[in-house]
Amino acid sequence: MDSKLLTVSPSPHIHQEQTISRIMYDVIFAMLPAFAFSIYVFGLGALMVTLIAVLSAVLFEYLITKHLLKREPDILDGSAVVTGMLLAFNVPSNLPWWLIVLGSFVAIGIGKMSFGGLGNNPFNPALVGRVFLLISFPVQMTTWPAPFESRMSLTDVVTGATPLGFIKDGLKNGESLVDLMQDVPGHLDFLLGMQPGSMGEISGLLLIFGFLFLVFRKVITWHIPVIVIGTMFVFSGLLWLGNPDRFVDPLFHILTGGALLGAIFMATDYVTSPMTIRGVVIYSMGIGIITILVRVFGAYPEGISFAILIMNAFVPLLNKYFKPSRFGEKVKNG
């Protein structure tokens, strides 16, 4: 036998094929149907918002990694692309370009890189960017282009309120919920995406398709999205049963606003969600409850971004106090 040099390393000697970049590209792929639909509904604006957000996110990550952190940039891992896309999905399709770039900078620069980059950020970067914009530029961030109205124009667009905003304003002005509900589209239209809203959040059906794809590819498990949506459904359902004249029905809550986008694509962010199943249950229920609280009792018509960021803050505590059930733990007497 020849004296060929053999590789020696500790076990295991085989590895599964899923890598960080494959996971990121799967997430991007899962968002593509909803993205295509947004272009169909909102036209050029949706395309421009996404292009600007993705390019600026990647550029900021590259520059900060190379010049501030002085590390080798790894932009091909796809994580900055995902952050850029998620930011774009969370803003109106007519947002001015400089606001998008600013949002990207806050998302990547402050939300992600200031903590040391991928894997270290406590808050979902895209949501940090989004909430920063929402609080600083409330007018631009809540001016929603109406579907199909001005698809070829980037500026003079016909706008309308989101269903959640419309109901909230109406109730505040003392109008009856029954009358208000007659002026918004039906649930089926919501599911298909015929509603004003942030660029990528409108089509529940295509977002659910993305969810199924991510579960099939073993990128995420069903737990977080199902528990978030389930909690929202139960909580808003209880309110609705208690007083149907004051509260909208639970399906309305799930199919409007950013509920599905948030539950499927943002609450599931690896870095900012808990490590154990018990932690995941509490985290997800917290998101569902806070979302409904903000929507029903808070100042903003939509609350899932706040809910996710608030629960992100609890993740380190959840990880510390909710350990996995250890094998051989239950048996005490031995």
Binding site: D74, Y270, S273, M275, T276
Partner: peptide, 8 residues
């Protein structure tokens, strides 16, 4: 080997 992305 890359950074831990806390995928759990």
């Amino acid at each position: 080997s890359k950074v831990c992305i806390r995928c759990s």
